[in-house]
């Protein structure tokens, strides 16, 4: 799985863009995914040779994996960073008090909402979304300069942590 962006004819970026650099909405990715999946799914090769069936199955699972990597913001940013040589899994983040306090605050408010305090829900969602949008914007503007590698790894990891935190809380809010 070298470059999932190329597989869907996208520009490697933290957000979704055409190869020419124009911004794309999320449902375009889904449309492309189903289109290529229809062309490659093993069901479409049931009557073909074993080698062809195997190739279809391999491609189809590559597409599933690539789609999953690009579908949500967090994993897309992670994939993009990996292409620039920054493997998130191999990094150790420095302790950051501000981030820690932010997390504690959000967790507390989330717990209150979970306990039934619906009045806080709307503002909490707003705050989480705005943290997420800010972090994503930071990556998008970093990408504007088309870097070859990541220079300021610490800031990058800090922003990534914010994106990860807000994505995680967003999901928990959603499944409530």
């Amino acid at each position: 799985m070298n470059n999932p962006f190329i597989l869907f004819q996208l520009k490697p970026a933290p957000d979704l863009r055409t190869q020419e650099g124009d911004i794309l909405p999320l449902d375009v990715l889904k449309a492309r995914y189903t289109k290529v999946q229809a062309a490659c799914h093993p069901d479409s090769f049931a009557m073909a040779s074993e080698a062809q069936q195997k190739a279809a199955s391999e491609m189809s699972s590559r597409l599933n994996q690539a789609y999953k990597m690009l579908r949500d913001d967090l994993s897309r940013v992670k994939t993009w960073l990996a292409l620039l040589g920054l493997e998130i899994e191999n990094q150790t983040t420095k302790p950051d008090m501000d981030l820690f306090e932010l997390q504690m605050d959000l967790e507390e408010r989330l717990a209150a909402v979970a306990a039934g305090d619906e009045s806080q829900k709307a503002t909490l969602i707003q705050d989480i979304e705005s943290i997420k949008a800010q972090a994503l914007d930071w990556f998008v503007s970093l990408a504007q300069n088309t870097p070859d590698t990541i220079e300021d790894v610490d800031t990058c990891l800090n922003q990534y942590s914010k994106l990860a935190l807000s994505s995680r809380l967003e999901q928990r809010l959603y499944s409530m």
Binding site: V36, A39, A55
Partner: peptide, 12 residues
């Protein structure tokens, strides 16, 4: 077989 899959994606 593998090349044909790449082509299928291009075509799609």
């Amino acid at each position: 077989a593998a090349l044909r899959m790449d082509k299928a994606i291009q075509d799609a």
